[in-house]
């Protein structure tokens, strides 16, 4: 089985069985920031562990804003792979992160909304929270390129 086929297989398996581990194993950066995911019915909830290495401000202490951005972006990408049957990692065009509250050193969650899926471009909204969804720590919007020819 070549690499593309195995990736398709992994994505299909995650879509079918909600088994995220094998897929996330293929993304070193996801492991590096302590990202996991759980499919709950139609929704996917992404989670990032408060790894000491994710700290940006050691005095507060607080999560690094860049890690929060990386987490939301990874969540958006994975969410798209599940929703669109995109067999590759979709290419990010741009990302805007609004930082709403400082991220405490505790688990962070994220959910994504696919606002629009065009033929070539998709628009995804991501919200990240710790306490509850009504008090998000960051909100984000990203565009992805879908027809990523080799």
């Amino acid at each position: 089985m070549n690499e593309v086929d195995s990736m398709v297989e992994l994505i299909t398996r995650t879509q079918r069985e909600g088994d995220w581990e094998a897929l996330l194993d293929k993304i070193p950066y996801a492991k590096f920031i302590g990202l996991s995911a759980q499919t709950m019915g139609d929704e996917i909830i992404f989670r990032m562990e408060p790894l000491p290495t994710n700290t940006g401000n050691p005095i507060l202490p607080a999560l690094h804003g860049g890690v929060i951005a990386g987490f939301m972006e990874t969540a958006a990408t994975l969410n798209m792979m599940m929703r669109l049957d995109v067999i590759q990692v979709p290419k990010i065009i741009d990302l805007t992160v609004d930082y709403l509250r400082s991220g405490n050193m505790k688990p962070t969650f994220a959910t994504c909304t696919l606002n629009r899926q065009g033929r070539r471009v998709a628009n995804v909204h991501v919200v990240a929270w710790q306490k509850n969804r009504e008090t998000p720590i960051a909100s984000s919007r990203a565009h992805f390129l879908l027809d990523d020819e080799e």
Binding site: M7, K26, I27, P28, K31, H64, A69
Partner: peptide, 27 residues
């Protein structure tokens, strides 16, 4: 570093690393 890879098949660095570098340098 190897753990910065986002796309293993194409051997690309994850954009999260780029976000962190930008956030840190701008800050």
């Amino acid at each position: 570093a190897e753990h910065l890879i986002g796309n293993a098949r194409k051997q690309l660095i994850h954009s999260g690393v780029i976000s962190t570098l930008l956030d840190t340098a701008c800050g």
